[in-house]
Amino acid sequence: MNSFFDTIFTSDFVFSTIRVTTPILFAALGALISNKAGSPNIGLEGIMLMSALGGVVFSAYTGSAFIGLLGAVLVGLISASILAYFTLKLKTDVILGGIAINFFADGGTIFLLYYLTGDKGTSSSLPSKVLPNIDLPIIQNIPVLGDIISGHNILTYVAIILIIGVWYLLNKTATGLRIKSVGENEDAAKSVGVNIMKVRYLAMALSGVFAGLGGAFLSMGYVSWFSRGMSAGRGWIALAAEAMGRGTVLGTTLSSILFGAADALSNTLQLLGIPSELISIIPYLATVIGLLIYAINNTKKRKLKE
């Protein structure tokens, strides 16, 4: 047990938590925006996966990590817009539409990967680029703190900035107010002349961009290749994080970090010789427990109100 705590209370573990929280946080912020507009994006998992491949492909064929990132974001934007077209315009059930996007991503990424590389597992034969890690000047020299918050991938810092960005968008801008008004009371928003469709499209598109950033981090930061199914449930975990965060930016961020820590824990425990099959379930178990605690609390509160 000693060695267990030795691994948890280290700057390495905190660093690793921040690192693995990044993709979950991106997706959870995306989920937050689309949920605020009342059009949940259930396709985040699949969109992240497609963007992860998009980043690898674009960067490999252009030789530029930056264009790869743009490509990943573009893939996220387009696939979320397609999903939005189906759910908003054709009134496809939100959940079924999301499920369909995820199936599409599962098969489509393998299909394209095989078509481009002749391999169904990973993109290791593609010369894809990675986004740089950044050493923060001055801070990197501070003991412990420097080890923890310096040297992360650039997208991790982007994610941190976007926490504030999303808060600002939702609370301080006209667009944010419109998004919230559409989600909270559709009819009231309509009566004051808000174009509901447009706002929801925008919110879905934004959530796609966020999932795109998360996907880019997976294949161009976390690791330097694409592998099948690499989003590994993070999109679903992000949905759980958003729910547990009770629709607030701070809450969503904190619950993302919680799930990130569970993920980091499973990475660390692997080193202690516990069977990897059992360790692999930790993030999923944490998500189920988290969701249940949230749901139970919610039910209690509702009952108190009644």
């Binding site: 369909a100 599962d106 098969g107 489509g108 393998i110 299909f111 169904k120």
Partner: peptide, 14 residues
């Protein structure tokens, strides 16, 4: 590759 079918499946659901 046979994974093409998954693409078709998703489109049918949508």
């Amino acid at each position: 590759p046979s994974e093409m079918v998954y693409i078709l499946q998703a489109i049918i659901i949508l």
